[in-house]
Each structure stands twice: as C-alpha cells, then as structure tokens.
Design a protein around this nucleic acid. Structure first.
Length: 342
DNA sequence: AATTCGTGGCC
DNA sequence: TGGCCAAGAAT
C-alpha cells in the first residue's frame, strides 16, 4: 500500500479538483444545488443503480414531490409508483420514512452531521458521508464502489472490497486525503473519475488527470485492482402464475408478504412447482416468463384457473385502470405482457 | 459476517 | 445464454 506525504496529498487535491471543475458532471440534475433533500433523494436512488437510469426517475420524483414535506405527506403508493421499475423498493419506503423524521420529528430541521444522518432510515455509512459532505461541508470520505475502485488502484490497496471490514482500511488510508476546503466536490470528483478514466471495464488510465498518483498503473498491475470476491449465482425457481378473471374481466392479484422479496407488492398469485413434470402438455409448449433478481432466477408459467368461490385475505380483483395506477414490480409487468401475447 | 434485496446493460 | 457489474443498507 502506498503512503502519501502531505505534499503529495495537496498536489493530488489540486489536480483532482481542477479536473473536476473543468470536466466533472456538473450538469447532473442533483448537482444543480446543495439542497439536502435533493442530495438525499439522489443518493438513495443511486444506491446500486446506474446514473443513466436514475436521471429520469430523479427529475420525475422532484417534479412530483419537490420538498421534504411533500414527500413526508405523500401516500406511500404514490412514492412507490414514482419508484416503479427502479428496484430495491425498501429504499423508497426508507426514503419516505427519513423524510417523515426530518419533516415531522425534527420539524424540518435537517440532521447536518455524519453521525446524525446515519440515524435516518435507509442512510448507511456511504449515504451519510455523501450528504454530510455535499450538502453540509463535513470532511468525510464517501466510500462507495467508485471510491473503492479509484483508491484501490491509486494506493494499491489489495484488501477484498466485498468484505465489510475493508471499509475501515480505506477510511483510514483516505480520510487524510479528503480536501478539507471542498469535501463534497472531492467526493463527487472521485465518483466522476471512477465512472470515466478509472471505470471498471476498459479504463483510460493513460489520460487520467491523476495518472501520476496511480501506483497500480505505475507497477503494471492495474488490472488486478480492485480485489473483489465473487458473488454467488442466482438460484433457479419455478412458479405457476394463476390467471383468474371475474365476470367483468378484472384480474385477480395477490399481495406479497410485508417482508422479503418484493415486499407488499401485488402480483398474480404465484405457486411454486418442484419440476416441469407438474405442468401439463399444453403449458410446456409455452415459453415461461423469465426474470432474474440479484439472488434468484424465476421461471413462470401462466395457467388459467376457474374463479375460486372465496378469495383469500391477500387477494382481490383489479380493473384495468387500477392495475395501471398501481406500482407493479417488473416481473408482474412481464407476466401481463405474456398474457397479452397468448 | 454473510445474506437478502431489483433492474438493466454489456459482452 | 450466463455471468458480471452499477453512487449500499438492513438484518
């Protein structure tokens, strides 16, 4: 691991921020100002999600709910509809809970420190540091995937970034490097660097504004960084999706449990099957709906069923209009599309 | 500490 | 196609 002296640190800050001022992504909508609400919404949306995907969602979200009070007072269903398709839906619920803490419990007075921000639902070490530095000028490193990637290469840190305890290694190494005058810009500059010259695949290190600080490149081992252990592959699961219409043509849905995968969302009733041998010949001629989550791979065969005499407590029929107003997970949209094509 | 939690893009 | 990745947090 490299160890920079004070002169190197100050030089690095200058080079990084000079580049950021000239070529940073200042046009990103959440960088229009330092409103903590905008920063918080953007950071929650950006967790594990690409910038290109978030931009549209962010603008729509801010148009609909421009202030923290608007979000705090909004019906949860509206928040989920605005989040529909972004995934990791607990983020949306936690974001609204956080807004309610700020608007109601704290009466609109934002927690401004890293430690206080950390108490908000959905706000972990990265997000607390990002908001504290960007919106409130606190000098803390916002350690995310970009940060790991950039500094693992610059400093040749070979700890496995998939391990929780590695965060501390990076924190100790880089906390002294964060620019005390512009901590928010410093953190954002690292992110911009990490998605451009120092991106994961096919980086352009030779033209990076911090080339001369890159120890891994200097030693010809940049491709070995960052060190990251691999994830397990998703487990395959098969389901039947019960297709039930009532006399009005409404479609039967079932609400999922309030915890776990797609918590609280409505989908067609899904019934696990152990093997394809449980399907009849006609179903087997149909290509199943396929949907991959982080840790599960679903194959779903729609099957028409007679209307049951009695509905379960978590079941109800929805009209066409109701279905469109509802926030539905991607997999349910895929099922609906498959029904249309039958 | 290891799992769980979505989705889309890329090769 | 399948594997990997992308501004992580909660449990």
């Amino acid at each position: 691991m490299e160890d920079w002296n004070q002169q190197t640190i100050e030089s690095f800050r200058r080079d990084l921020l000079t580049w950021y001022d000239q070529e940073g992504r200042q046009h990103l909508p959440w960088r229009k100002n330092q409103d903590p609400y905008r920063v918080l919404v953007s950071e929650l949306m950006l967790q594990q999600t690409r910038v290109d995907t978030v931009i549209t969602y962010f603008n729509r979200f801010m148009d609909a709910l421009p202030t923290v009070l608007d979000l705090a007072k909004a019906p949860e269903e509206q928040v989920l509809k605005l989040w529909e398709g972004l995934g990791y839906y607990s983020r949306a619920r936690n974001l609204q809970k956080a807004a309610q803490v700020v608007a109601f419990e704290l009466k609109g007075k934002w927690p401004e420190s890293y430690d206080d921000l950390l108490t908000l639902p959905g706000v972990g070490p990265y997000t607390a540091a990002a908001v504290a530095s960007i919106a409130f000028g606190e000098v803390v490193p916002a350690i995310d995937g970009n940060f790991f990637r950039v500094f693992s290469r610059l400093l040749k840190i070979d700890d496995d970034i998939a391990k929780p305890k590695t965060r501390r290694v990076f924190y100790d190494a880089v906390a002294p490097i964060v620019d005390p005058k512009r901590p928010g810009d410093f953190n954002q500059a690292i992110m911009d660097l990490g998605t451009s010259y120092m991106k994961t695949k096919d980086p352009d290190t030779l033209h990076s504004p911090v080339l001369k600080y890159n120890a891994a490149y200097r030693d010809g081992v940049e491709e070995e960084y960052p060190v990251k252990s691999k994830k397990k592959k998703p487990v395959s699961q098969m389901y039947e999706a019960l297709v039930v219409y009532n006399e009005n043509g409404d479609l039967l849905y079932e609400q999922r449990p309030d915890s776990g995968l797609l918590a609280g969302f409505w989908t067609l009733p899904l019934r696990p099957i152990d093997s394809v041998e449980q399907l009849d010949g006609e179903q087997l001629t149909i290509k199943p709906v396929s949907h991959i989550f982080s840790h599960r791979k679903w194959s779903i065969w729609p099957v028409s069923v007679e209307t049951p005499d009695e509905l379960a407590k978590n079941q109800r029929f929805f009209t066409e209009e109701e279905q469109q107003a509802l926030a539905l997970p991607k997999v349910q949209h895929k099922i609906l599309q498959a029904l249309k094509e039958l």
